[in-house]
Design a protein around this nucleic acid. Structure first.
Length: 418
RNA sequence: GUGAGUGUAGCUCAGUUGGCAGAGCACCGGAUUGUGGCUCCGGUGGUCGAGGGUUCAAGUCCCUUCACUCACCCCA
């Protein structure tokens, strides 16, 4: 086969697709309870949107975007969205909400695209479910988002570890950054090659280093450089989370790779996922709306890695019960006509009804019924049709009895009650 | 972008010093004229990832290449 799927892209078939849908559905249900409305934005944007917000020095913008030149006269360069936040902020400003009604809460759900080397839990098209809140600078808002994540975790029956940090703001971050640069220069000879790069491009990411953990641990911590206001924000957030009973740890090495984060940043991991273990990540981005040409409005958000959560769910256990399933077996054309009609009535009960391939033998059809996991088989042949009846077979108990067609629906509904 | 591991039937894999490509599962049929699962019997199914080389002979040895997986990196 020469026309195969692209590297790092996946076909999600049957149960895999179902688990993703399940995670999305639970998250949607949560949004309803938190009174957060949906926003749907394009998958394609001008490349400049990401350059200005995500940041030229970020890995995402510098080497992971799918871009192409449009066919317009200007030769605009477009990019498949690598993350959701910039598009949501753009839409928010474009709708004039930053001026008319700045306090807004949105959720979005859909695919993102990054051209990375694929591995477990990392794909070139992947699904994010994200939440963005505008116009709320108070720590209660940060707390609410983390509580929301904890609610989802509980709802799915999973174990997540929440790690929290504060990066400071425009007042205190410069001093911290300078201290980190100084530390990096002092220890230049001990740093790994990647860290030499990091120091120049984005010194904060020095803290991400996993090669020499000790060096990263001893590096200056943003928490030690917070200005009084940032400190109060962070402490209030921690208090609120403790009061709400949300488990978390403070990890001074949580640094997000994107330029726009400030103050609160967090990462939520699951232990049964391999090395790509971040299932949720996010943080505060006051100032981003302004950078993209809007008013000065605070913002904060997070994104859930839907297939990573699905993977964790799969590793934990299989979810949800479904409707009882009935296999309809018809023998001969007149019976097929009757069965087609019957299928519709039974689906309305509701039941999962599958009309089996009517060209095949009874034996083959029963075999198929067993294979698809049907609980009941309803068999209609010429004899039954003549008596306006059907054989109702309980495939689990291997018992069978004849039921008149007009009573079949109520028999099935009744039989399923216990 | 870097590294390591793996590519043989739809799936999981075996294949000896180079010597006729196999098993289990799945699928189809039969044993049972209209009754599933269990059992037994039979059958379909192969570019041995691709290309080249060595050899009388290559799934096996050599070179190249591609894909997948995991890790680095990065992140959801």
């Amino acid at each position: 086969m020469e026309l195969t799927r692209l590297r790092g892209f996946q076909d999600l078939i049957g149960p895999q697709a179902q688990t993703l849908a399940y995670v999305e559905q639970r998250a949607r249900a949560l949004m309803e309870r938190y009174a957060i409305g949906e926003i749907r934005i394009p998958l394609l944007e001008r490349i400049e949107l990401y350059q200005r917000s995500t940041g030229e020095t970020s890995d995402i913008v510098s080497k992971q975007m799918y871009t192409f030149t449009d066919r317009d006269e200007a030769g605009s360069v477009l990019a498949l969205r690598p993350e959701g936040t910039p598009g949501v902020v753009r839409a928010y400003i474009e709708a004039g909400l930053d001026r008319s009604d700045p306090e807004q809460r949105f959720f979005y759900s859909g695919p993102m695209f990054r051209r990375e080397r694929p591995q477990k839990g990392r794909y070139r098209q992947f699904y994010q479910f994200g939440v963005e809140v505008f116009g709320r600078a108070d720590p209660a808002c940060d707390a609410e988002l983390l509580i929301m994540i904890d609610d989802l975790r509980r709802d799915l029956g999973l174990d997540f570890q929440i790690e929290l940090n504060s990066l400071g703001d425009a007042t205190c971050r410069p001093a911290f950054r300078a201290a980190l640069l100084e530390y990096g220069r002092q220890h230049w000879d001990e740093l790994c090659r990647d860290c030499h790069d990091r120091l120049e491009r984005n010194p904060l990411r020095l803290l991400d280093c996993k090669i020499d953990v000790r060096l990263a641990e001893q590096a200056p911590k943003s928490l030690d450089y917070l200005c009084p206001e940032c400190r109060r924000h962070f402490e209030t957030l921690c208090d609120l989370l403790k009061a709400a009973g949300v488990q978390f740890v403070i990890n001074p090495r949580i640094v997000r790779g994107l330029d726009y984060y400030m103050r609160t940043t967090f990462e939520v991991t699951s232990s049964n996922l391999g090395s790509q273990n971040a299932v949720v990540a996010g943080g505060r981005y006051d100032g981003l709306v302004e950078v993209l040409g809007g008013a000065s409005v605070a913002g904060i958000g997070f994104a859930i890695g839907v297939e990573r959560v699905a993977l964790a769910l799969h590793a934990a256990r299989a979810p949800r019960a479904q409707l009882p399933r009935v296999a309809l077996i018809a023998l001969g054309d007149p019976a097929v006509r009757k069965a087609t009609e019957l299928a519709r009535a039974l689906r309305g009960l509701p039941l999962q009804v599958e009309l089996l391939s009517t060209q095949r033998s009874l034996k083959a059809q029963l075999k198929r019924a067993d294979k698809i996991g049907a609980n009941y088989a309803v068999i209609i042949g010429p004899d039954e049709l003549a008596r306006a009846a059907a054989q109702l077979r309980d495939l689990g108990a291997s018992s069978q009895r004849e039921v008149s067609l007009d009573r079949l629906a109520s028999e099935l509904a009744g039989g399923l009650a216990h």
